[in-house]
Amino acid sequence: MQNYLLSIYQPDGGPPPPEVLDPIMRDLEEVNAEIKAAGAWVFSGGLHPPSTATVVRVKDDEALMTDGPYVEGKEHIGGFTVIRAADLDAALEWGRKLARAITLPIEVRPLQHVSGG
């Protein structure tokens, strides 16, 4: 089994109004329950807005910190889910279900296996 990161891309700006967001959150809870019931869920989380980010860069052995996201854009990663799937096709199916539920793009990417720890 391989772990996959399902990244949720959302547009910059505030959340949609409750009449739009509430059904999306209900559908998201249903998909998350399905992922958990299938034994594929590893963990997930939502992120605070990009304005809360701090970027750390090292230059000449000195850590430089700047506020905000690494790059300017019209969308950002708003949350993520890590799943365990037999193969990419299975992970893409979970990504499809998640995208349909929340009506936002989902990037599906395998995690590199790191041994030890």
Rank of each mutant, 00 (worst) to 15 (best):
H48Y: 02
V108F: 00
S51G: 12
V20H: 07
D67R: 07
E75Q: 05
V82G: 01
I77M: 14
Y9N: 12
S7H: 04
N3S: 12
M65D: 01
E19V: 08
E62G: 03
A63K: 15
M65L: 14
G117R: 13
G73C: 12
G79T: 03
V114L: 07
G68H: 03
L64V: 10
D61S: 09
I24G: 00
Y9F: 11
L98Y: 04
P69T: 05
M1N: 11
G68Q: 06
Y4G: 13
T52D: 05
G13A: 02
A86V: 07
G13N: 09
P17E: 14
V55W: 14
R26K: 07
A90H: 10
W94Y: 09
G68W: 02
V58Q: 05
T66E: 03
V55M: 15
D12C: 13
P18Y: 04
R96K: 13
G73K: 03
I83D: 01
P50I: 07
I106W: 05
E34K: 03
Q10S: 02
P16C: 07
E93G: 12
A90V: 14
A90N: 03
P11Q: 04
T66Q: 09
E72A: 12
I24Y: 00
E29G: 10
R57G: 14
R100V: 08
V20M: 14
E29N: 09
E30R: 15
V58D: 05
A86T: 06
R100M: 12
A40D: 06
N32C: 08
I35A: 01
P110F: 12
H76P: 00
D89M: 06
V42I: 11
A37F: 10
L6I: 09
A91I: 10
L5H: 08
R109M: 07
T81S: 11
V114W: 13
E75A: 07
R100W: 10
S44G: 15
P105E: 13
V42N: 10
P105S: 13
A33T: 09
G46T: 08
M65W: 06
D12K: 12
Y70K: 01
P69R: 11
W94E: 04
V20E: 14
A33M: 04
S115C: 01
I35R: 11
L6P: 01
I102Y: 05
S7N: 08
A53L: 04
A85N: 00
V114D: 00
Q112D: 07
Q10C: 04
G45A: 14
L21K: 01
A90C: 06
Q2V: 00
A86H: 01
S7C: 13
D67S: 12
D67E: 04
Y9Q: 04
A101S: 09
I102A: 04
V55Q: 15
I35Y: 03
D60Q: 13
Q10G: 08
Q2I: 02
G73P: 00
V31G: 01
E30P: 03
E93N: 13
W41F: 15
V20I: 14
Q112P: 06
E30H: 05
Y4F: 15
L47M: 09
K74M: 06
Y4V: 15
T54K: 15
K36D: 07
L64N: 04
A85C: 09
V114Q: 03
P110Q: 09
P16W: 06
T52F: 06
L111P: 11
A99D: 01
A85P: 03
L111N: 07
P49Q: 10
K36Q: 08
M25H: 01
